[in-house]
Amino acid sequence: MDTIALKFTLPALLAFARSAPPAAAIEQNCRFIQTKPEREACYKQQEDELAAKRKPVAPANDGQTLETLRQMRQDDDAVYRSINNICRGC
Rank of each mutant, 00 (worst) to 15 (best):
M1W: 07
M1H: 06
M1I: 10
T3P: 00
T3F: 02
I4L: 12
I4D: 10
I4K: 05
A5I: 10
A5P: 00
L6V: 12
K7P: 00
K7I: 03
K7R: 10
K7D: 07
F8Q: 12
T9A: 14
T9H: 11
L10F: 04
P11Q: 13
A12V: 04
A15D: 01
A15P: 01
A17Y: 12
A17Q: 13
S19E: 09
S19C: 12
A20E: 11
A20G: 03
A20P: 01
A20L: 13
P21V: 05
P21M: 02
P21A: 14
P22R: 11
P22T: 11
A23R: 14
A23E: 15
A23H: 12
A23P: 03
A24D: 08
A25D: 07
A25W: 10
I26E: 13
I26S: 07
E27H: 06
E27T: 09
Q28L: 11
Q28P: 04
N29E: 14
N29M: 07
C30V: 01
C30Q: 01
C30P: 06
F32L: 13
F32R: 12
I33F: 06
I33D: 04
I33Q: 05
I33R: 00
T35F: 11
T35H: 08
T35I: 04
K36H: 06
K36N: 06
P37A: 01
E38W: 00
E38S: 05
E38V: 04
E38Y: 00
R39N: 04
R39S: 02
E40R: 15
A41R: 15
A41V: 05
C42F: 07
C42A: 04
Y43C: 00
Q45G: 12
Q46K: 15
D48I: 11
L50I: 09
A51G: 05
A51R: 12
A51M: 14
A51N: 13
A51Y: 10
A52P: 03
A52E: 10
K53G: 03
K53L: 08
K53M: 02
R54T: 06
R54Q: 08
R54E: 03
K55C: 00
P56Q: 02
P56I: 01
V57W: 00
V57Q: 06
P59I: 07
A60E: 14
N61P: 06
N61W: 10
N61A: 11
Q64R: 04
T65P: 00
T65E: 14
T65I: 14
T65R: 09
L66K: 08
E67Q: 15
E67V: 07
E67T: 13
E67W: 13
T68Y: 10
T68Q: 14
T68F: 13
L69M: 06
R70Q: 08
Q71F: 09
M72H: 07
M72T: 11
Q74A: 09
Q74S: 08
D75Q: 15
D76K: 01
D77R: 02
A78Q: 10
A78W: 02
V79S: 14
V79F: 15
R81N: 11
S82Q: 04
S82T: 03
S82V: 02
I83H: 01
I83N: 00
I83Q: 03
N85A: 10
I86F: 10
C87L: 11
R88C: 08
R88E: 03
G89L: 09
C90E: 02
C90A: 00
